[in-house]
Design a protein around this nucleic acid. Structure first.
Lengths: 227, 227
DNA sequence: GTAGGACTGTCATATTGCTGACATGTTGGT
DNA sequence: ACCAACATGTCAGCAATATGACAGTCCTAC
């Protein structure tokens, strides 16, 4: 792929705000681009973490399996997000599974190259710190939700975040497409598939949302999904 | 306090391994030392996070309160741990409460000073990254526990970690002192006080542990507390 | 050394939400 | 256009664990 195109892609990442054009070129040179389609696994636990990934398009989920086959999804990532960060946090293997949820374009970079870049640019280092801080905050909030909220509150507040992150504002509410399967939502909220189904249908009955496999529509303001 | 003494204290932190003596002196100069006794609060949510803390002695818990007065403890920290790290992760307020569990000696450092130091020492920056990565891993494991394990497994595996972190190996097992209250364990494991009581007594009946308010004794190997 | 507060022990009861089972609906590949 | 695989909808029953109540015990600050 032409360096110019890569450059253009990379400019979508906040993390690289304020970096010199020269640095950006260097970044682009060291980046390889890949397309991954739905259900592809990008890494497994125990895989060597030599690479850091930038998600340009699509959605990726970061999740774990229990010994008896249950699943819990730690994060659902969209365009502009970074993953595989354990590579630059001093771990040599991954702990989680990274799987493509919606066909994705991913930029991959060797961790050494990225670390070299960080040494040259304190700016970048600070951005990385901020990014990690933000991750840490998000996962702490996740813990808080798990402990303090009940199943339907967790589902509702997940929908809130989902719409906020991935939705488009319309004249009379919000629209997200495509939607997720009930099982995917269950894995994200530590609930059972059947519970998700029930809560979703209740919300539809109360005329707060409308949904199908293809879309989720929120009628009115985001704070209707407050819990 | 004499700079020498501070220096000596600071050398207990892994994070500063490999730093030049000159750098260490600079670190010591910018650090202030404080004693905090049980139940003192070091910071609240919304407090400005201008300071990063190094825990030299004692125990600190990092926790959150829900609106209806429930508590969940995110971390229990002992000597050698860092807290208030949101200061250097680009946040200007804290999200959690930091409270002294056992009388503590804390080194405090202005975040600017620490950031200056980081800019001068790529070594330190890497250590910080590692430390944050480790935090991230610990909290992900916490989420996994919450989702996959039941109450008594969570309590048992907490005891495992507690003994491992804070205990002393004896001829025929492990000893930790002092112990925690049942409520504190409940807050750490997202369970009810009564459940902790029950599990603890069951383990004592099975002769795996022995405990009182003053100590926890594990009879035999750590993996007896596997779940 | 005592009183008040904090912590522990034990029970009975309530409830949330998971499990399994099964029918119905939807989709995409050949 | 069909069929297999996947996803949704619904329900009854059950298990885990929280809650509330209260008695007994220990601790510590006067």
């Amino acid at each position: 792929m032409a360096e110019k195109t890569k450059l253009w892609y990379l400019q979508n990442f906040n993390m690289f705000d304020g970096m010199s054009p020269k640095m950006m070129m260097e970044l682009a040179e060291n980046t390889s681009m890949q397309n991954n389609s739905k259900k592809e696994i990008i890494y497994f636990p125990e895989d060597a973490s030599n690479t850091i990934y930038f998600l340009k398009a699509g959605k990726i989920k970061i999740y774990r399996l229990s010994e008896d086959g249950k699943t819990t999804t730690l994060q659902l990532l969209g365009p502009g997000e970074i993953f595989g960060e354990s590579a630059i946090l001093g771990q040599d293997t991954h702990d989680n599974i990274a799987e493509v949820v919606e066909d994705a374009i991913v930029c991959a970079m060797d961790k050494r190259d990225f670390q070299d870049l960080m040494e040259k640019s304190p700016n970048l280092t600070m951005s990385v710190n901020k990014f990690i801080g933000w991750r840490l905050r998000k996962i702490q909030a996740h813990v808080e939700d798990l402990v303090f909220k009940n199943a339907s509150q967790r589902i509702t507040s997940f929908l809130h975040r989902y719409v906020e992150t991935f939705g488009k504002k319309m004249v009379d509410g919000w629209m997200v497409r495509p939607f997720l399967t009930h099982q995917e939502i269950a894995d994200l909220t530590a609930t059972a598939r059947q519970t998700v189904n029930q809560v979703l249908n209740e919300l539809a009955e109360q005329d707060v949302i409308k949904f199908s496999r293809r879309f989720l529509q929120l009628k009115g303001e985001l704070d209707q999904l407050e819990s």
